[in-house]
C-alpha cells in the first residue's frame, strides 16, 4: 500500500497521542480537573447563572463538572477512533486515487477533519468560559461542525473517487 504524505500521518499520530494523554489526565487528574472547573465556574458566576442559593448553585456546578468531564471523555474516544480511521482512509487515497489534484484535495479535507476531536476540548473549555449552553453552541458552530464536515467530505470524496475510478494506480 502507498503511504500518504508525512504531514497527514503526523497530524493523525499527533491527535492519537493527544487522545491517549487525555485518557490519562481524565483518570489520574480527576480531582484537579474538578477543582479547576469549580474555580472557573466561581470566576464566571454570571455566565453560569449562579444565584447565591446554595442548593441551586451546587446543581449548576455539578452540571459544569459533568460537561467538562464529558468533553474530555468524548475527546479521548473520538481522538482514538477517528485518527486511525483517517490514517487508513488517507492510505486508501494514496493507493487508489489516480488524480494528483483529487488526492491533494482529499488529503487536505482529511488532515483538517482528523482535528475534529479537538472540538470536544474546545467544548470543555467553552462551557467553562461561556456557560453550558453558549459554550456548547460555540464549540458546535466554530469547531465541531466545520471540522466534522471536512472529515465527512474527505470520506465521501474517497467514496466518490473510488466509485468513479477507471484504472488502478500502478
Amino acid at each position: 500500500m502507498r503511504r500518504p504524505p508525512l504531514v497527514v500521518v503526523l497530524i493523525a499520530v499527533f491527535v492519537m497521542a493527544l487522545g491517549e494523554t487525555a485518557g490519562a489526565v481524565m483518570s489520574q487528574m480527576r480531582p484537579q480537573t474538578e477543582r479547576y472547573t469549580l474555580a472557573r465556574v466561581a470566576g464566571n458566576p454570571g455566565v453560569h447563572g449562579l444565584t447565591g442559593s446554595a442548593e441551586y448553585d451546587d446543581e449548576v456546578r455539578a452540571r459544569a463538572v459533568f460537561a467538562v468531564e464529558a468533553g474530555l471523555s468524548f475527546f479521548h474516544t473520538h481522538a482514538e477512533g477517528l485518527a486511525p480511521v483517517m490514517l487508513v482512509a488517507a492510505t486508501l487515497v494514496a493507493s487508489l486515487v489516480g488524480s494528483r489534484r483529487i488526492r491533494a484535495a482529499l488529503y487536505a479535507a482529511m488532515t483538517l477533519g482528523v482535528l475534529f476531536p479537538l472540538g470536544y476540548l474546545a467544548y470543555a473549555a467553552a462551557v467553562l468560559e461561556l456557560g453550558r449552553d453558549d459554550g456548547a453552541a460555540f464549540a458546535e458552530r466554530w469547531v465541531l461542525t466545520p471540522l466534522g464536515t471536512l472529515a465527512i467530505v474527505g470520506i465521501l470524496g474517497l467514496l466518490v473517487a473510488l466509485g468513479t475510478r477507471r484504472a488502478p494506480v500502478t
Binding site: L6, L10, V13, A17, E20, T21, G23, A24
Partner: peptide
C-alpha cells in the same frame, strides 16, 4: 503500560516532526 504508550506516542510524534 499506559505511561509507556504515552511516552512512545510522543516520541513517534517527535520523530515524524
Amino acid at each position: 503500560f499506559g505511561g509507556t504508550t504515552i511516552v512512545a506516542m510522543w516520541l513517534l510524534v517527535g520523530t515524524l516532526a
